[in-house]
């Protein structure tokens, strides 16, 4: 197995209080590239909290988070933002597109912020990404003119804009009907298997969890089981 993309060691997240509420307790996890990892557990078990810690959006109160051999748990906000921009892509339960920007402009946001491509190259890439999710013709529309499934696909295209090594999803299918949901899961599996990215999804949908390569089960803030599953189609 290749080197993990991201390693959590004794990762801990507590809320201040007396006694402190423990959201995530000493989680150990290695996120593998090329694999689709699903984090499952009952609601309130801390699976989303763990995802936000892994995604550098929330800051752990203890433990380490190793990326490229560096501990990012206590890195500066700017550095963590930079890594999110370059290497991480997020998809949420709600589409979370900026309402004043067209689908195309939404995809352009991370590309322009990173600024690695020229404007023309960035536009070409944004169009290609929209084409990949089957929305080549709808890039000029504002999010409110798109259906729920379409919005989520735009959000996925945006998450992939800077060619991230890690794609993180927080119930990305939670708001979709079964057809769209299956489509999104298929896309995520492709991202891992075809493109070699590390994909981590929080879900309560056992159908999706069954399709994952690695299933991480959580209970009361603890990782209770990490199980590799046989590849399925």
């Amino acid at each position: 197995m290749s080197d993990p993309a991201l390693v959590a060691r004794h990762l801990r997240r507590e809320l201040e209080g007396d006694p402190p509420a423990v959201l995530v307790a000493d989680a150990d996890l290695a996120v593998q590239p090329g694999k689709f990892t699903a984090i499952v557990g009952p609601s309130g078990c801390g699976k989303s909290s763990l995802l936000y810690l892994l995604g550098l959006i929330d800051r752990p109160t203890g433990g380490q988070l190793l990326f490229d051999g560096r501990d990012l748990a206590q890195a500066s906000g700017d550095e963590r933002a930079r890594i999110r921009l370059e290497h991480f892509g997020f998809v949420f339960q709600f589409h979370f597109l900026l309402p004043e920007f067209t689908a195309f402009e939404n995809v352009m946001l991370p590309l322009r912020r990173l600024g690695r491509l020229s404007l023309r190259e960035a536009e070409a890439r944004a169009n290609q990404l929209l084409g990949d999710v089957g929305l080549a013709e709808k890039g000029w529309k504002l999010p409110e003119k798109l259906s729920g499934g379409e919005r989520q696909r735009v959000a996925i295209a945006r998450a992939l804009a800077n060619n991230p090594r890690l794609v993180l999803g927080d119930e990305p299918t939670g708001n979709l009907d079964s057809v769209n949901s299956a489509r999104v899961v298929e896309l995520f599996r492709d991202l891992a298997h075809q493109q070699g990215r590390a994909v981590v999804c929080v879900t309560h949908d056992m159908g999706i969890a069954d399709l994952a390569d690695i299933r991480v089960s959580m209970l009361d803030g603890r990782v209770v089981e990490v199980r590799e599953q046989a590849p399925r189609t």
């Binding site: 906000g77 700017d78 912020r113």
Partner: peptide, 9 residues
């Protein structure tokens, strides 16, 4: 959303 995308404070 912008923060999650990698925009800094």
């Amino acid at each position: 959303i912008l923060r999650s995308m990698g925009f800094s404070e």
